[in-house]
Structures are given as structure tokens and as C-alpha cells.
Design a binder for these strands. Structure first.
Length: 257
DNA sequence: GCAATTGTTGGGAG
DNA sequence: GCTCCCAACAATTG
């Protein structure tokens, strides 16, 4: 699930509960999510430090401390939650003890995890080259980015090297709003379609970030995800699924061309 | 037992 | 370098 809106929600969890606070203790419950160091070294290096600033870059969440920067990536099933209960949630992998409670890094599948990085160069090295953050990208910028690629527009939108933050669900949602079929070649879109894509991206992200997820209300394509016989919330015809770039796309053959 | 799953990476082919 | 496809990572569900 975690795409830009979800990660922005996790950033707010950090902001609300951890900013200016000291990390009293760290417990690595599953070493499999800690990268570049042992669980014990991870605990030792972070314990006692203060979290001074938070930042989101695409689907990455950064927590700056008065020591190394803590980096989170949530893969397909990760999350960050505040808890004041002692009992461990299922799939809790790392616990950051803070005054009055703790932050839990939860992740069922453990596809990604947590990293420590000292300085900007190390952060860049861990995150790699990413395109501009989708939430801070204008329609005009999106047009330029999309035009430069010949692959399916859906694959281009999901390519973090091109544009950082969109995933399978948000890409489907904004393509549906812009009435563009996911398999269309990016460089063959008309000006009007590119404009619609930009407007759709900004409105989808704005509404999603507000609630920390892609909304599933009646007017959202996402409401049809996972139902047995999905129908277009706009024209009510049957939706279709196609395999694009190795992922399942949900789209409306009536509305999207 | 088999297929599929919302993310990313690396390898290989063309 | 670009594009596409596949396998792998891990755990669970249908």
C-alpha cells in the first residue's frame, strides 16, 4: 500500500510524536529489516539521540537526528505507528521507545526496511537517483517528464527515477481521472491529455495526502479495487485489468483511451 | 499445491 | 542508454 500519501502520513506520525524527542531505546525485533549494520549496532547507534527534523522524498521517509539520519522505506506492506501499549503488534519489526510510548515500524513482508546514513552523500547513496517528488511537481513539469519516454505511460508514472512517489494505485487513479489508458505510449500523448494528467495528479495527491491514503469513496477508482466485478464509478461499465510493467492495472475501457 | 499481491533491484536481451 | 521481461526478496491469502 505505502505510496506517497501513506508515507506522508507516516511522516506526520513522526512529526507529532518524535520531533524534538529523545529516542530512549531501540529494540530490533527482526534483524531482517535492518540494512547495512547488525541489529545490535543499530540499537546502540540510535539510542539516546534526538530526532530533529523529518522529511519525505518520494516513498522514502527520513528522520534526521543529532547523529546519523534514519531512513525508512515501507515496501508493499510497511507502516509506522505510534503506540502507548506495551504489547507488540503483529509484524512489529523495530520499536523506537520515546517518552510516553513508542514508534513501531511494522512490516509483514519485509521487502524493504530501515537504514542509517551519515551525511548527505550517504543518504543519496542509499536512496539512489530519484526523479522530483510528485507532490512538488507542477503540471508543466510532469508534461516534460512524461514526454521524454516511449514506454507505457503507466510504467513511466511509476518509475521512481522519473517521478518519485506514485505507485500502482495512485497511477491507476490519476490515469482514470485523466481518461488516459495505462498502456498508451508516454511520448504519444496529446497536449490536452498531458494537461489532464497534471491536473489529475495534483488533485489526487492533494486529497490523498490529507487522509494519509488513497481515498476509497464512491467517486474513486480505488473503491473498485479488489471487488469481484469492478465497475467504473463514472460510466458504470465494467472495468478491465491488464498487466503493464509487471503490475496489475485497473482501468475503464469506456472512459480511458 | 498453485497463483497472486499495492515496491524495488539487478540481470539479460534486443 | 533505453525498454522490456523475469526472478528474487517474504509472508500471507484465495
Amino acid at each position: 500500500v505505502p505510496e506517497l500519501p501513506d508515507v506522508e502520513g507516516f511522516r506526520r506520525v513522526l512529526e507529532d510524536h518524535a520531533i524534538g524527542e529523545r529516542i530512549a531505546r531501540v529494540d530490533v525485533l527482526d534483524e531482517g529489516v535492518v540494512h547495512g549494520t547488525s541489529g545490535a549496532a543499530f540499537e546502540r547507534r540510535l539510542a539516546g539521540l534526538a530526532i530533529t527534523r523529518t522529511e519525505r522524498r518520494g516513498k522514502w521517509l527520513l528522520a534526521q537526528t543529532n547523529g546519523p539520519t534514519l531512513l525508512f522505506h515501507f515496501g508493499m506492506t510497511g507502516s509506522l505507528a505510534w503506540s502507548t501499549k506495551d504489547a507488540s503488534e503483529r509484524f512489529e519489526r523495530v520499536r523506537f521507545g520515546i517518552d510516553g510510548g513508542h514508534l513501531a515500524y511494522l512490516d509483514q513482508r519485509k521487502l524493504r526496511g530501515v537504514w542509517l546514513a551519515d551525511g548527505d552523500a550517504a543518504i543519496e547513496k542509499t536512496i539512489g537517483r530519484q526523479g522530483p517528488d510528485a507532490l512538488r511537481t507542477t503540471g508543466a513539469q510532469l508534461t516534460q517528464l512524461v514526454r521524454g519516454h516511449r514506454g507505457a505511460v503507466k510504467s513511466v508514472l511509476m518509475d521512481q527515477h522519473v517521478l518519485a512517489g506514485l505507485g500502482n494505485m495512485s497511477s491507476d487513479e490519476l490515469l482514470w481521472r485523466a481518461r488516459v489508458a495505462p498502456s498508451r505510449r508516454a511520448n504519444e500523448l496529446a497536449d490536452g491529455e498531458l494537461g489532464a494528467l497534471g491536473r489529475a495528479m495534483r488533485s489526487v495527491l492533494r486529497a490523498s495526502v490529507r487522509v494519509g491514503r488513497i481515498p476509497t469513496g464512491r467517486t474513486w477508482l480505488t473503491s473498485q479495487r479488489g471487488v469481484r466485478d469492478p465497475h467504473c464509478p463514472r460510466c458504470h461499465n465494467s472495468l478491465r485489468t491488464s498487466r503493464i510493467g509487471g503490475r496489475t492495472s485497473l482501468w475503464c475501457p469506456t472512459c480511458q483511451h
